[in-house]
Amino acid sequence: MRNLLAFISRYQFLFFYLIFLVISFTLLYNNNYYQRSKVVGVTNGITGKFNTYYENMTSFIDLKRSNDELAKENARLRALLNLKTRIIPDSLVRLENDLTEKYISARIISNSTQYRNNFFMIDKGYTSGIKKDMGVIAGNGVVGIIIDVSEHYSSGISVLHKDSRISGRIKKNDQLVNVSWDGVNYRLGDISHIPTHVSLLPGDTILTSGNSRIFPEGLMIGTVEYVDDEMENMFKKGKVRFTVDYNKISYVYVVDNPTRGELNRLQTKTPNE
């Protein structure tokens, strides 16, 4: 025992380093986006406050552009309303039946585009009905998925993340593709899993497939920038230009799809792949 203590005190610097190293690794390992600890949920409240102060100080800089964006969004929603025969008192509810998606509007208070893995934070939390795994969209495209919720704030992983994978659909021929991000240019995403027989040309539109029930179906992801004809395992690859400029988003909607839980339970029952 005395020898052990003597050993520890001789190498105490190394010993303490190893302890901190293990703590850091545990944090790193347990906090990937699938299984995050409660600790981070609590700290969201603190960092959220700081980010709100910062956002409040700087948000007036792009007020004009935000206004334009919201006006456009209003026009689009008004046009949608006119299409419906029945007048719905709340425009955020898309259809009569309450099994359809609801949208919770929120403001981005922190956001990044320059890292390999980017995150954002919004100013609504579980008191506004936001839950983990909900999709986040902007007026003109997908933004990300919620991973942590505290009382008044939530954080999410952006489309610009190494683990982000969106199921997309080519508008003109309904073929399914995968959209991900390679970490270079925040305006360009990767399209993979394009079957070789499927025609895809620059300028074609990629929409969300809605298969995951995270994002609503038929939401714009972007337009094809170019297609690489070099094959990889019988699939082609390409680049898509995102419609959303992730560096500029300020107002978003969180998608609440009541059927998603049910769908997930069904999927876990059915053996997959």
């Binding site: 610097f13 850091s24 545990t26 600890s37 980010n51 990044s112």
Partner: peptide, 28 residues
């Protein structure tokens, strides 16, 4: 002291981690 050096570095890394949503990375 060695312990203080490591502890302060750990706290600094952790503070940055909390804001950048990368728990453990900057701490490590």
């Amino acid at each position: 002291k060695g312990f203080q050096l490591l502890l302060l570095a750990f706290l600094m890394g952790l503070t940055i981690d909390l804001f950048m949503h990368t728990p453990g990375m900057h701490a490590l």
